[in-house]
Design a protein around this nucleic acid. Sequence first.
RNA 1: GCGCCACUAGCUCAGUUGGAUAGAGCAUCAGCCUUCUAAGCUGAGGGUCACAGGUUCGAGUCCUGUGUGGCGCGCCA
Length: 548
Amino acid sequence: MVPEFIVEGFIRAIKELGVEEFVNKLRFEQPRNEQFGDFATSIALILAKELKRNPRDIAQSIVDHLSFDKRLVEKLSIDGPGFINVKLSTAFFANELERIFQCGEDYGKSKKGYGQKVNVEYVSANPTGLLHLGHGRNACIGDCIANLYEWIGYDVTREYYFNNAGRQMQNLARSIFARYRQLLGEVDFPFPEDGYHGEYIFEIANEILNNFGSKYAEETDENLEFFKKYGENWCFQKIRSTLEMLKIHHNVFYNEDSLYKEGKVEEVIRLLREKGLVYEKDGALWLALTKIGLNEDRVIVKSTGEPTYRLPDIAYHREKFLRGYDLIIDILGSDHIATVPDVLAGLKALGFDTSKVKVVFHQFVTLMENGLVVKMSKRSGRSYTLDELISEVGADVVRFFFIMRNVSSHLEFDLNLAREQSEKNPVFYLQYAYARIASIFDTAKERGIEFNFETSTECLHLPQEINLIKLQTRFPEVIEVAAEKFEPQILADYLYDLATAFHTFYHDCRIIGSNEPILSARFKLAKVTQTILRNGLTILGVSAPERM
RNA sequence: GCGCCACUAGCUCAGUUGGAUAGAGCAUCAGCCUUCUAAGCUGAGGGUCACAGGUUCGAGUCCUGUGUGGCGCGCCA
């Protein structure tokens, strides 16, 4: 984050040059190359184009009009085609470190979203089976995004939308029932055409057999209802325990069925009809999407009387709007991309501001082992469930791996790397940095080494130290950007850089054994790093161990 | 055929609303433990940023086209 006084200084200089209409073009960046200082701006190059003057001359004029506190700015220079580079002083960084230290344990939090409500919907798997790897990525991304918004001050609702009614659940009931009858000895009992073939159906059937014997063998509506309920509870309990392993908790479980029971779906049809956007054709009810800018009309109620997903989805999102959210975030797999425009168009037609809805699409997960795609789990011989993956490599690794790539990129989950309990594994690299810091404080305590956080840190001047402070100042900004872009990976990358900077510092600069004031200053540096690592890891849902 | 996403080092990926000499991890090679945890640090090699045009002082980044891969395109969700 560029210090205020630098920005203000440049704005003043630009105004004094009489070109204040270009003030909004002022941007700063952190140069890749250290030699160019801490912050750079290409404003002179931009002005050169507008004013048709030599960029270096303009840069010189700007610099001539700049007046900074000499204590804070070490050097101003004009380099290359006309970049203005600013190098800050050790006094400046000492001030920054002190400022961060004063923020305490909450460093990184902001009030940016104060008073605003956000709803993050993620996982949302129906209770018809176990969570698989795609759900895992969805869950981790959603939970991180929810955490990020909490950190920037939003009032966050974590929501899970599910459907325990309708055809899919009937299908589940019939699948379990078929397996149950097969287990009872009717080996040829027909399995439903599009039934759930997973191994877990046998497990459920077997459980029912063990608990109730042949009590439910008769194929009646009542009994099928029992199988449905039993299957639903079984699946939901599994899903919840899997999420629990990842420390993921939702505040609201929203049942699609309630939209029907409370007449919300009917209401949406009525409202759309009032707008003249609904018509009947071939015995079905259609939504006239072509009237609101889309390419094709779509069915919302099938000729069988059942609605398609679009209708309850519109009703559901309408409910979210009516509950007063300022921001509605949906986390969806890329296989849902095509469904969203219809739903948004419907909502827009109903008069809602759909710019408040942000849909985050994540690409798929491919499990790799020894350079090959893994389709099946070795232990169970079935496709990998999220459960199995977690018990194999641990929750921390799963959570980190699922967010360490760009949300919109395919994620290659390398089992070999994930199993690796060593420096190769980036999760341990971060945790190790944290544990090392904890260890320094432990050692200091054991040896009775005293330090004082009141001591000035202006003595810190080595590149390893300054680099660490620079990274520390960026933390709040990183959280904001990661939240706004719905991209937890930005935070993961940042933490990795911070850990690297700390490991380098740790290696080159001893803390215990230094003399005052270096001793206290470095302890403060370590303390702040520790806070940031802990906060960052917490947002990612990864534990911060005191010892490794 | 249409839509969305991707294409950057041998592999997996970053690249800050167009900036300076394109970065990191893994893998390979060479160093560093008597001192706070070596799950660490330092260095070396490794690039036609898929391809071709365009926009401009400047393009991995923006525009157009082509190719390759993934996901969609239903009265499934």
